[in-house]
Design a protein around this nucleic acid. Sequence first.
DNA 1: TAAATAGTTGAACAGTTGTTCAATTGAATA
DNA 2: TATTCAATTGAACAACTGTTCAACTATTTA
Lengths: 116, 116
Amino acid sequence: MTKICDCGNDEFIAGVKKRMPDDDLIIDMSDLFKIFGDGTRLRILIALEKEEMCVEGISKTVDMSLSAVSHQLKVLKDAKLVKGRRSGKQVYYSLCDEHIFMLLKTAEEHLREERE
Amino acid sequence: MTKICDCGNDEFIAGVKKRMPDDDLIIDMSDLFKIFGDGTRLRILIALEKEEMCVEGISKTVDMSLSAVSHQLKVLKDAKLVKGRRSGKQVYYSLCDEHIFMLLKTAEEHLREERE
DNA sequence: TAAATAGTTGAACAGTTGTTCAATTGAATA
DNA sequence: TATTCAATTGAACAACTGTTCAACTATTTA
């Protein structure tokens, strides 16, 4: 008979809702994570952390076709995660923001710890 | 005539490759990010950071059907991000690991900074 | 200017994902 | 025990995603 769960109480739910970040921020967050959530893109980002590279170099490093890499670079560029600078025939890509790399490091460390 | 890009040099590529994390880790990382890359799951995680809740409570908080929430809870449970404890008719869910929450906070802060 | 090289782009396709709906399970209560 | 409530599960379906292929653009070199 006793109500254990407070979830029937609308005020309780409203209280939790109020403490959540606003919807726009949550959408932005999940969009950002979505970008990291693909192996090819993640490998491109990690590769670019090591070296600035042209598309062909990235393609060889991550073992993906030139076209596939170029498509993903566009996604990363649109998300302002990488930038390209043209030099002659090549376009050299690098990370926009080293800052974003803390995210990847944090995830990496978490998983490493989880492993042993 | 001068070769500007070092990407034609196989040793250069091999060098970058060697400095990358191994494939398994990259797959684990992208799998983790994939989970955060969905708005419903992200909202569930953020809600559970605030309060332990039963499925109906979560469902009301994130404005999704009971079934949709339950399906996503299974994904989160399989990934060891949340755990459930049964108490009577209800199952109460909470975060497995507050540690993982640093990731979300890092992303949130990054986006907040980017905004203004 | 013509050819070659580096990269981009759009359409198409297969594979994956998330939600809904209906059926089902598990626990408490009448 | 039969009923009710809370949650889970599986199938189906639509929407989305990532790769490939072919065509195209931009820059350099012959």
